[in-house]
Simulated scan of single mutants.
Amino acid sequence: MRRFLRKWHRDLGYFITGILLIYAVSGIALNHRKDWNPDYSVVSESIQLKKGEWKTYSSEEIGQLLQQFEAAPVYKKHFNSDEGVVKVFVENGMVIFDPTGGQAKLELLLKRPVFYHINKLHMAATLKAWVWVSDVLAAILIFVALSGLFILKGRNGLTGRGLWLTLLGILLPLFFIVFYIS
């Protein structure tokens, strides 16, 4: 039985290593959501224009305004708000233009390379097919965890040191459940 478990433990362990590394990196990023947004980054840019330079706020004038930003925002549409500012909708963001003050501020919300995609996988917020892949991964993890308990025997196996480490691994999350999650 140990020979069978060792073979499958090894092969399935190799198979899931890449996925686990991606999950681990994503997990660290998601654990620190309060410190940063792991999915998006915000690009802000301001420019100063001459007061009263703009008159009609046509699509052409707004296009000229947008060309002055380094981020090269892509125009979608705009409107004059009741507060006297022009709100310009651009791809992935917005420009607020105050013609009386001559100030234009751009804010873009951009997907973080790599992190956006691996976080979506981690949270199974993608195709239904990935939910099945992650369920299979979970089943393989259960098998690898349980088979690992029985591969070694003696003082390093489940009847010795392995028992204490396994119990510690169970007690740690239970400690946080009991004392920190209500």
Results as ranks from 00 to 15, higher is better:
Glu91Tyr: 12
Val136Tyr: 05
Ser147Tyr: 05
Ser182Ala: 08
Gly160Val: 03
Ala145Phe: 14
Leu121Ala: 07
Gly154Cys: 04
Leu5Ile: 09
Ser46Cys: 05
Ile22Asn: 02
Arg33Tyr: 06
Tyr75Lys: 02
His117Ala: 12
Asn92Glu: 11
Phe97Val: 03
Lys87Gly: 05
Arg112Ser: 08
Gly169Pro: 01
Gly162Ser: 06
Thr166Pro: 00
Gly169Asp: 02
Val85Asn: 01
Leu66Phe: 04
Asp35Leu: 14
Arg155Phe: 03
Lys34Gly: 05
Gly52Met: 15
Leu165Cys: 05
Ile118Tyr: 05
Glu70Thr: 15
Gly169Met: 05
Lys55Arg: 14
Asp135Met: 04
Leu30Glu: 00
Tyr75Cys: 01
Leu127Arg: 11
Gln68Lys: 15
Ala29Val: 05
Trp164Lys: 12
Arg112Lys: 15
Met94Ile: 13
Ser58Phe: 00
Leu21Cys: 12
Ala145Arg: 08
Leu167Lys: 10
Asn156Asp: 06
Asp35Met: 11
Ile16Trp: 03
Ser41Phe: 06
Lys105Met: 08
Ile62Leu: 07
Ile96Trp: 03
Trp132Val: 04
Glu70Cys: 02
Phe143Cys: 11
Ile181Phe: 08
Pro99Ile: 09
Ala125Glu: 15
Pro73Asp: 01
Lys51Ile: 09
Leu49Ile: 12
Val42Asn: 07
Leu109Ser: 13
Met1Leu: 13
Val88Cys: 02
Val95Trp: 02
Val133Asp: 01
Thr166Arg: 04
Trp36Asn: 11
Glu83Arg: 10
Gly101Lys: 10
Gly27Tyr: 00
Ala139Cys: 15
Trp54His: 12
Trp54Ala: 06
Ile62Gly: 00
Val131Gly: 08
His117Gln: 13
Ala125Tyr: 13
Lys87Ser: 12
Leu172Thr: 10
